[in-house]
Design a binder for these strands. Structure first.
Lengths: 376, 376
DNA sequence: ATCCTGTTGGAGAGCGCTCTCCCGTCAACT
DNA sequence: AGTTGACGGGAGAGCGCTCTCCAACAGGAT
């Protein structure tokens, strides 16, 4: 009776060992493919595994291997939340009194506009695709976390410190994101998408944004455009800054020291608004470089509404080569950012780091390419 | 030396106990808030925790509590992959010989078009938002999984069986998805978004799609539209079917036994194509109900291109109240599906089920509401 | 024959935690 | 005073796994 009661649960290594007539250690060896095991015994073990329907228990394995075989995919924002209640907390308080499993009640979570915004940008889906495609073959599935408030950031750190995940892939939506520093300060492994605004000793993957902008400028010039403007992204994020700088520099080098600029926020709406501004300033412009595809789409819409044909009257180049670029009309000529590849590389860097923690921190910069479609 | 070597790792309960001068059990009690503990000792323990920087080890806790404190968020597709090598495998083979941790090499993962498609639909981001907003306050973070091939489905089941997650939230993109049945067959807890095409004993949340369609029909009729057509979604998924049925029934009840129908695939492109078809069949139509917002947006575009004003010449109603509905021009009148709330409810159902597995399987049906904007 | 070396299986000690016992203490009853 | 029970703390037994030892035994070289 007592025996049977225990047998109710999932089969364990012990059960398999008994069924196969070998020791627990041997079964473990067969399953993990470590050391030589007699082929006959190996077959017996595999049979026993099949018969019992055994599945290794992840928690038990993690406990001894000290790895979770899991990584966190963190979408991080700047986060401006109310200051802590006790502004002048003592050192004991600051040392890290957050304990338990984070099941504390009363965490509201907000209206979720941060998450909604994140998913509205096609960029994030590409990152997930790249990460999952790389990680899945290794049997690893990302844990999705959002870190838009300081509380949420603490939870991310806490989650990693508990060993719930072995490391983090961090995608920041804002510059000045404090999360990367928090993570490295805690000595936890992580890789970022995009170079942090403030230098941190941490791996990242990034794109040579300036080169991409150069490609765009050269193409517009080669096409014969002479009255060229640009719609910039937010300048507090390196990508936005670099794309503008790269574009301006190239234009200057080709004898166009002045380029009209309107600022956008990487959204279609802001791109449309920026286009209106540019048209007002220079009604006869014949070329536009938008710092991302969404803004380019907005720009195209406004151009069409104002009676300009794209590309006949105005050539438009976007950036990213997102899905929108291919599906909008006319299809967008754009600078390709291989997000999926970059996300996969980010995962690779993290896994590398996990298997050899002594290795130096390395980053990888990808080169953009120009994708020619109809808009320019 | 040996002592120091052990002390290198993260502090354990034992360390905290030593620092506080109590037993391991007492520290555990304080941390988990179980049973009464003398306030003085409690304070001592909390101090010790702060001093040592203790964080509970998740794996160790999971091992004994037998729960992972984690749930899987699975995006599942129909999945048509090559049949298994041995079509007539023996029973031993079928019993479940998949073992190990899934780290088997050679899993290609495909081009990831499935994932790309998933994220292209704004629906998924809303689900994630709802799930995360509900789960995060409980200290739970979803593990993101895709199950578009039979191999991936096996991995999901295997993942749950290993105890890596306590249950699954399943969002199917196709009807006839075999995953729900696989999960329930394995006796694993799960909750679906949307009623499965084939009945399965499993909880789900869903929308009263027919009621939503009725709302749309009644509004178009009340508005004075008399030549009304509809763009249906895929009819193999219940949502698509129900929206069409509900619309037709209501129209019939109001004296419109025939309603022109064009089929779409819930994408903007397919909505546009369907609109072309409808215009060809009935050039003077004055009202259109599209089974989702994306198709409505495509329809609006075509109508505009064909010289019809929305809503003056043709009233258009969408479905879902996705972000696109509010941001397109004109803003779309639409039937709201409270995806975030539904996703949160789905999470609640799962957590309920986990805490009381004996409870009967329950589902929740949400009522849609009509959101009035400019398009109808 | 003896020794060495290489190979393969088993025994058993944990990993860090929870939780059931059990025991000592003290207040409130007979 | 004796008994009862509630309460709060400690001891220790695992949870299911990995991995280090160690033992057993094979096959050569001496």
């Amino acid at each position: 009776m007592t025996e049977d009661a225990r047998a109710v649960g999932a089969p364990t290594l012990e059960d398999v060992a008994k069924a196969a007539g070998v020791s627990r250690a041997t079964v473990s060896r067969v399953i993990n493919g470590v050391r030589n095991v007699d082929p006959v015994i190996q077959a017996a073990v595999r049979d026993a595994v099949a018969v019992t329907g055994y599945t290794p228990n992840r928690a038990a394995r993690s406990l001894v291997t000290r790895k979770a075989d899991s990584i966190a995919l963190v979408v991080s924002g700047a986060g401006d939340d109310p200051p802590p209640v006790a502004a002048t907390a003592g050192p004991a308080e600051a040392t890290g009194s957050r304990v338990g499993d984070g099941r504390s009640a009363g965490f509201d979570g907000g209206v979720g506009s941060f998450m909604t915004d994140v998913f509205a940008d096609p960029f994030f889906g590409r990152v997930v695709t790249g990460v999952v495609n790389f990680l899945r073959p290794q049997g690893i599935h990302p844990v999705l976390m959002f870190a838009e408030t300081s509380r949420a950031r603490d939870e991310v750190v806490s989650y990693l410190r508990q060993g719930s995940a072995d490391g983090a892939l961090v995608v920041s939506t804002h510059a000045e994101d404090p999360l990367p520093a928090l993570i490295t300060d805690a000595g936890l492994p992580a890789v970022l998408y995009a170079r942090p605004a403030r230098p941190v000793r941490i791996s990242y993957v990034d794109l040579a944004h300036q080169d991409g902008a150069r490609l765009a400028a050269e193409h517009l010039l080669a096409r014969g455009c002479r009255r060229i403007a640009t719609i910039a992204g937010p300048l507090d994020v390196p990508a936005g800054q670099d794309r503008l700088t790269g574009f301006r520099d190239t234009m200057a080098r080709h004898g166009h020291p002045y380029v009209p600029v309107a600022g956008g926020e990487f959204t279609e709406e802001s791109g449309a608004a920026a286009m209106e501004l540019l048209l007002a300033e220079q009604p006869d412009l014949d070329g536009v470089f938008a710092a991302n595809d969404l803004m380019a789409v907005g720009a195209c819409r406004v151009l069409r509404e104002r009676g300009r044909r794209v590309p006949d009257d105005v050539a438009v180049i976007g950036f990213d080569d997102s899905r929108a670029a291919a599906s909008c009309r006319p299809p967008l000529t754009t600078v390709r950012q291989p997000v999926e590849d970059m996300a996969a590389e980010m995962s690779r860097l993290l896994l590398d780091r996990l298997s050899r923690p002594d290795r130096p921190v390395t980053s990888v910069i990808f080169e953009p390419t120009l994708i020619l479609r109809a808009s320019a």
